[in-house]
Every structure is written in structure tokens, then in C-alpha cells.
Design a protein around this nucleic acid. Sequence first.
DNA 1: CGGTTATTTGACCGACTTCAACTGCAGTGG
DNA 2: CCACTGCAGTTGAAGTCGGTCAAATAACCG
Lengths: 243, 243
Amino acid sequence: MRPPTDAVPAKIRLHTPLEPADLAVLSELALRPRAFAAQELVAAAGDPLDLATIVLEGMVCRTKLLPDGRRQILALLLPGDMVDLHASVLGRRDDNLEAVSPCRVALVPQSRVLACAAARPALHEAFMREAMIEAAIAREWVLNLGRRSALEALAHLLCELKVRMDGVELGDGSRYPLPLRQQHLADCLGLSLIHLNRTLSKLKASGCAIIRAGEMRIDDWNGLVSLAHFGADYLHFRSSLAA
Amino acid sequence: MRPPTDAVPAKIRLHTPLEPADLAVLSELALRPRAFAAQELVAAAGDPLDLATIVLEGMVCRTKLLPDGRRQILALLLPGDMVDLHASVLGRRDDNLEAVSPCRVALVPQSRVLACAAARPALHEAFMREAMIEAAIAREWVLNLGRRSALEALAHLLCELKVRMDGVELGDGSRYPLPLRQQHLADCLGLSLIHLNRTLSKLKASGCAIIRAGEMRIDDWNGLVSLAHFGADYLHFRSSLAA
DNA sequence: CGGTTATTTGACCGACTTCAACTGCAGTGG
DNA sequence: CCACTGCAGTTGAAGTCGGTCAAATAACCG
């Protein structure tokens, strides 16, 4: 088993071919990670955007809250995901970063990101690409929330996570770890907890997939894909460029 | 009246202070715009991402479609908006750009964008900021679709457009041009056309605002803001950095 | 084991969708 | 000038999806 921090080079190489020297510089960015417990806040709205966040292990989410407590998850960050790499160009954070599961996260001063990007042009391009892809995923979520039914949207989210998890070698093709509570899924999909629970039952009944014991198990990938109308193009994996 | 292409410098200076030399280089990017009729496709999913898009006049939207024809608008682009400035790092477009109203749009080869960014570091930073802000808006839309009611979401969208229109001097504080059909609004908000129509009636009944003859008129800004729980922080205007 | 949190189930309700028809208006051509 | 057409918007009725309230398990944890 490779050490878990290998998710970072694995993820970035999904998108950008890098030389060993680039990877060496990259690995120095993620030194001295911090550990967070489940539900702990990694960063809060209003904070200055002077730190980039690199997830090494576990799962993190972006959230926004409404005054009356309604919560929406804006993005799920898996090991290898790097966010807010360029965010210093904005003033202050307008969302929260919250640990979904116990996790290890590197919080990197923007100055170090900049130095790193300046030293290695390939990394500069790679960082840009990470940011663009995160934005593309957010747009796909807009479609998910706006125009897909609860079951379609759930299936779509689980397809996305499958592909992303496989990308960082955390899935084995038919299963992957899924540390989300049902409340998290509901907050990703804009559903009530209760309706999400019933939608999960429907998914189970379809025979395509089931979530149990913190793990997603896929029994019929094609069925799941067609339930969701899933196409992986928006994830912009390098391997899919050929198509 | 200033020429309409002034929306570009107006918009970018909302976010980034620029010197005259920067503005001169910028204005050369937007030479030779193309005109599009309402509903015309500016770019389609699957196209190579080798052109950046700068809106000079009129309104453009990003859309995604589901196989059965359901449509979701992912973003509304106003005069001055510049999108896909860095998108050459991705392979192919995964969404469409569609003219909402008759419009003029500059389609700029990525190579010229890069040359421009290389020549003027301030523009490089400004372009980055534009991209980050577009992503921040997309995340706010996720919240809008996921957790706000139809009326709240409608009010929120109209607040956002008010602030953005004022930013490029197309609004006068209590009115702004709104060339969207009701179907467009419905596709922004993930609603059926009919329910959107009824939600518009409800908004009118509230006395806060009314849409008529291609124009949005605001009668009670504070009321509209509190209906929507609107806060402009996610737009990251430079003027709001002070707060 | 007791206490807390996560999940499941039932009954009911409301927001939003669908289907269908009608209005108002602008353009077009007889 | 006035039918005719086509599109945007409006209204009504009925149905469905998803939300809310309430309570019963089931899993987790010290």
C-alpha cells in the first residue's frame, strides 16, 4: 500500500503530465499537515484567503449556510484535491471548509504556492487546471440541483465520486470509501434528510448500488450511469482527452 | 453616453486597479467583435476551448442540456464579463454559450490572452480574479438551487443582477435592462416556466420589484434583499473589501 | 449498560410540475 | 384594414415529488 499522501501527485497527474522535479517541488508544499476531527471547521466564511488547502487524507466539504440554518454543500474535496490555490486574488472567504471525516490537510500560505508556481511552470499550469476543473464540477452540480430528480442527482453524485475516487486510487472499480453521513448527501443534493433516505432505498431497490458501513458498493455500473445520465467529460481527466 | 465597449474596463476595474497602459492592452483584445442574434449559439459543448469570450453588449448564458431536453442555465454573462480566459488548460468545452439577447461578443484566441497576460502582470492577475469570481458566483447558484425557495431564489438572482448591472453602469440604482424571457429565468432557477410565472406574480404582489418590457424595476431594494437573504460579498467587488 | 447520534418508517401537507386552454401582442400578407 | 400566425405570458385544475412532523429502531461510544 502506498502512503496516503500519494493522492496528491496521483490527482494532479490525472490532469497534467509532470516531471520528477515538479513532483519534488510539489511534495514540499504539503509538509506538516494538520489533522482535523469530523465536523471540525477547517476555515470559515470571513477568513482571509491567505491559505490554500490541500487534502491529504479523509474528506472535506465546502459549505454555505442560510441565516435560518439551512445548509448547502458546494463541493466535496477528496484526497489529492487542492483548493483556493489562487484565491489570494479575492479578499475574504465567502464559504466554509468543513471536515467530513477525520482528515489530514495541508494549509499552505499563498506565498509558497506562488513561489512554487514561479519555479515550475508545469505546476503553475497544473494549479490553474485544478481550479478550472473545480469550477466545472460546480457547474455540473448546478445542473444536478436544478434539473435532475432526486434519484438521478443521487446517482450522478455517486458516479462522480466513483470516478474521482478511482482517479486517486482509493476505489477498486466496484467499491470506494464513502464517509458521508446521510445528512451530508442531503446537503449536497438540496434534499431533506428524510427524502434522501428514501431515495437511497430506491437506489438500493434498483440493484445498481448500495451504501453500507461507510462504503459505496456498485453492483451495476452501467445501470447507475444510465440512471444518472452520467458523462465524465466535465471532470476533464487527461485520459478522456483522447476521446 | 459612453460607448458600450466601456463595460469591459468598467467591469475589470471593479475588481482590480489598472493603469492606463493595462487598459490600452486590454482594449486591443476586444477588437473585431462578432454579432449574434438572440438564441444563437456562440459556442457548443464539444468545441475546443481555444477561444476566450468577452461580452461587449447584450447578454449571453452558459447552459447544459440533459438528453431529454431539460435545460439548466449555469451562468449569465453581462457586458464586461470575460470567460474561459484560462480554459485552454482544459480540453474541450463541456457546456454551451448561447446568446440571450442580440449581442456583440469578442472571441479571443487563447494565445492572445496569454500574450496579453504576459505583457501586463496586472492583467494576468485581473484575469485570474475574473475566473475566481465566476466560480464563486456558480457556488452561490448552487446554494440558490439547493436551499432557497422559488421566491427567495428569484429575488436573489435579481439582486445579483442588480449589483452586477450597476457595476458596469447599465443600471441606475432602481432599474436595469433585463432581456431574459421567463423561460430563461426558469432555467436559471431550476423551475418550470409556469411556476416561475407564478413566482414572478408573487414578487410583484410583494411590492418589491416588477419586471416589465425587458426591464427590471426595483421599488423596495431593502425588501428585495431581505426576501433573498442577499449579501454581495460573494461577488468580491473591490469596494466591498473595505468592510 | 445508558446516552447520544444516525437511520428508518408512517402519515400528512405543501411546493412545484404537468397538461391544457386562453390572452395579448407583434408581424405578415391578403 | 383586417384575418392569420406565432410567440410570450397568464390562468386553472389535477397530480407528484419532496418536505415536515412525529416516533420507532439501529448503530455508536464511553
